[in-house]
Amino acid sequence: MKASTPSDAIVATGQNALALGFSGNLGNIDAYISAVNRLPMLTQEEEVSLARRWRESNDLAAAQGLVLSHLRLVVSIARGYLGYGLPHADLIQEGNIGLMKAVKRFDPDQGVRLVSYAMHWIKAEMHEYILKNWRLVKVATTKAQRKLFFNLRSHKEGLDSMTPAQVDALAKTLNVKREEVIEMETRLSGRDIALESPTDDEDDKFSPIAYLSSESSEPSKVLEAQRFDRLQSEGLETALEKLDPRSRRIVEARWLANDDGSGATLHELADEFGVSAERIRQIEAVALKKMKGSLASYV
């Protein structure tokens, strides 16, 4: 009877998710890490065999065996990025994606172990996740900035700003401009600030939202101002055009002649048109009612 090998056990694990090492509740990150560390490691011969089965036959069980045997590597690498304040579980999850990409592209005939090849892919996925989630505002977009982002902290001595000599040394080591080192140090020294206070007490008045907000920029205020401007220009002119000349003259003289609202009196217009003041008031009332109907579509 042929003795079982670590690769056989790992492939069996891929076929049954609750088999070797993955029993119990894995919702807890500590339980997951403990289960991962119990998975057997592959010898070089077993690794080559599984990799060839995956490349030549598209054997998913073989690919699962390669992935499962290297999950502990992802956990180990993720532990080195905990200083960025992101969840350990999320870092592991992103690293696992990188591991699967590495397994998909791994060529066993190159003479390189999967552990060495996969490290690049695992770190690349973690780097991308950190850069996207460490700040609301992206701090590194170019290749040089990414290099600085992940190396600056380890080269700094304490929390104080770097001296000119340290800046020059780091720029030379990483082959970047000293201005880029200074800029990245400035970015990393800042912190994201919440616009609103997390509490409902007196601290609210000191939160940025209290002095950065502008009522005039609120969407409702902007729309209201736009409607008012349209009402004053296009709407008013359209409404006046629908009046007869006498009614328009009365409305303009009474309400639009002066900005302060001090227009002509009923008696002054009565003398102008040779009618009674009461008749002017009646004409004005009918005209305003007609204008109100015309302006309804602009409100």
Rank of each mutant, 00 (worst) to 15 (best):
S4Y: 14
P6T: 00
P6Y: 01
S7M: 01
A9T: 04
V11D: 08
A12I: 07
A12N: 08
A12G: 15
Q15V: 11
A17F: 10
F22L: 09
S23C: 07
N25A: 14
N25V: 13
N28F: 13
I29P: 09
A31H: 10
Y32T: 05
S34D: 01
S34C: 01
A35W: 12
V36R: 01
N37P: 03
L39V: 00
Q44S: 08
Q44A: 07
E46W: 09
L50F: 04
W54K: 11
R55S: 02
Q64G: 06
Q64S: 08
L68D: 08
S69M: 05
H70V: 09
H70A: 06
R72I: 01
I77C: 12
I77V: 15
G80K: 11
Y81M: 09
Y84K: 03
Y84L: 05
G85M: 09
L86C: 12
H88W: 06
E94S: 15
N96S: 04
I97D: 04
I97E: 08
I97F: 05
I97T: 07
L99M: 07
K101N: 13
K104Y: 12
R113P: 04
V115M: 10
W121L: 03
A124S: 14
E128Y: 11
I130Y: 00
I130Q: 03
L131W: 05
K132R: 14
K132N: 13
W134Y: 15
V137H: 07
K138W: 04
V139K: 07
A140C: 01
L152E: 03
R153G: 05
K156C: 11
E157M: 04
S161V: 12
Q166A: 03
Q166R: 08
L170C: 03
T173W: 01
L174A: 00
N175F: 00
R178A: 12
V181Q: 15
V181I: 11
E185W: 06
L188R: 06
L188H: 04
S189F: 14
I193D: 02
E196I: 11
P198I: 06
D201K: 00
K205W: 07
F206S: 02
F206I: 07
P208F: 00
A210I: 00
A210N: 01
L212T: 10
S213N: 08
S216A: 15
P219H: 11
L223C: 10
L223F: 10
F228V: 11
L231E: 14
L231T: 14
L231H: 13
S233E: 14
G235M: 07
G235Q: 13
L236N: 11
T238S: 05
T238E: 13
L240A: 07
E241Q: 13
K242H: 10
K242L: 15
D244G: 15
S247C: 14
S247E: 11
R249P: 02
I250V: 10
I250T: 09
R254G: 05
R254D: 05
N258V: 06
S262M: 12
G263P: 09
A264W: 10
A264R: 10
T265S: 14
T265W: 10
V275C: 13
R281A: 08
A285W: 12
K292Y: 12
L295I: 14
Y298L: 12
